[in-house]
């Protein structure tokens, strides 16, 4: 394969609140892989929270003004560049705000009246908002990505999980199917992974429901984790920090709720790219996930130090448990996990 001989691709970057801390691994791995792909991301100056799905639930105009402030900041930072968001919720909010402002002159005028109170303005249509996955696949492409692969993800069964807000309501270009996209499948394929044809790939992770109604939230998480385990996926690959948080951090609580013992690690697509490019797990923030990814990664020869106390998949046996001890599931590759009740 020939060396990459093209100028650096430059973008405005909107990390979003999650990537500052709970999904720092996503940020870290995005930057590390971007370097390999000759992409440069410049964080827009003094950005604010996009409001997630919460602000729009309480305020209409203020939520649009909150989002539009970021679009205005992006124009100020470096107007001509595409604005890239790695978080699907931020991505949709930014994109939707611009779309509605373009379509609705009254809304655009009121949002601008609000922005003027902070000395800002935003001309609808002037910022092109894109998701990080789209940018990587459309601007760099499979061929150039494959050229960087030094450690193919051979033999690793990967369930590509898109979630909702990158897939729907279909604000991307037409060829993306809102229910069965292939772009992440294709990317994992060109990294050499064995891609699971995952039927739940655009189902919902539950968003904030774990905090509103456990029964609803955990059920949505269970469906996805069980689905991936049924398809004998070694891990789930995600493109959104909310999906990662639900499927990874709440997997233990979900297991306790349903008395199951699933163990399916959840990594970001940028971490998978980095591993395939031969980067070290540390450079990619691997090890911060609560469901231990080491057994899965051992399959491709990646070794990690013992994790600090985190939360595993299987529920702990209680001290006063009078039932007969059952053989423990090895903390091995996912897919061996079965419902304890069965």
């Amino acid at each position: 394969m020939p060396e990459l001989i093209r100028p650096k691709l430059a973008y405005n970057y909107f990390p979003g609140c999650s990537l500052e801390r709970n999904a720092e691994a996503y940020h870290k791995s995005s930057m590390a892989t971007a370097e390999r792909l000759s992409m440069r991301f410049e964080e827009i100056d003094d950005w604010n929270c996009c409001g997630a799905t919460e602000y729009i639930s309480l305020q209409m105009l203020a939520s649009y003004a909150l989002i539009a402030r970021n679009l205005a900041q992006a124009v100020k930072s470096n107007g001509g560049r595409d604005l890239v968001a790695p978080c699907s919720a931020c991505y949709l909010n930014l994109k939707k705000c611009d779309k509605h402002m373009r379509a609705d002159a009254v809304l655009a005028e009121r949002v601008n009246s609000a922005l003027a109170a902070g000395g800002l303005a935003y001309q609808p249509g002037s910022v092109h908002v894109r998701h990080l996955l789209d940018v990587v696949m459309e601007d760099v492409g499979c061929e150039a990505i494959a050229a960087q692969v030094t450690r193919p993800l051979k033999g690793l069964r990967v369930a590509p999980y898109y979630g909702c807000l990158i897939s729907r309501p279909g604000l991307r270009v037409d060829e993306h199917n809102p229910e069965y996209p292939m772009i992440l499948d294709d990317l994992m394929g060109c990294l050499g992974a064995q891609v699971v044809d995952f039927p739940l790939k655009t189902h919902c992770c539950g968003g904030h429901m774990t905090q509103i109604s456990e029964a609803t939230g955990f059920e949505l998480i269970r469906r996805l984790v069980k689905g991936a385990a049924d398809y004998q996926a070694d891990l789930i690959v995600t493109v959104c920090p909310m999906c990662q948080l639900n499927l990874d951090a709440f997997q233990g609580a979900m297991n306790r709720y349903f008395k199951t013992a699933y163990h399916v690690p959840v990594l970001y697509f940028t971490q998978m790219m980095g591993l395939a490019f031969g980067l070290s797990p540390e450079e990619l923030g691997i090890g911060a996930e609560l469901v231990d990814a080491r057994p899965a990664l051992a399959k491709i020869g990646v070794e990690l130090p013992e994790p600090v106390a985190g939360e595993g998949g299987a529920p702990k046996r209680r001290k006063d448990d009078k039932s007969l001890p059952m053989p423990k599931m090895p903390a091995g590759p996912a897919g061996t996990a079965e419902e304890v009740r069965r």
């Binding site: 203020a62 003004a65 402030r69 009121r110 009246s113 609000a114």
Partner: peptide
């Protein structure tokens, strides 16, 4: 600035 923007949006 953000507070001023939000306050104005709520008024509107």
């Amino acid at each position: 600035g953000l507070k001023a923007i939000i306050a104005r949006a709520k008024e509107l």
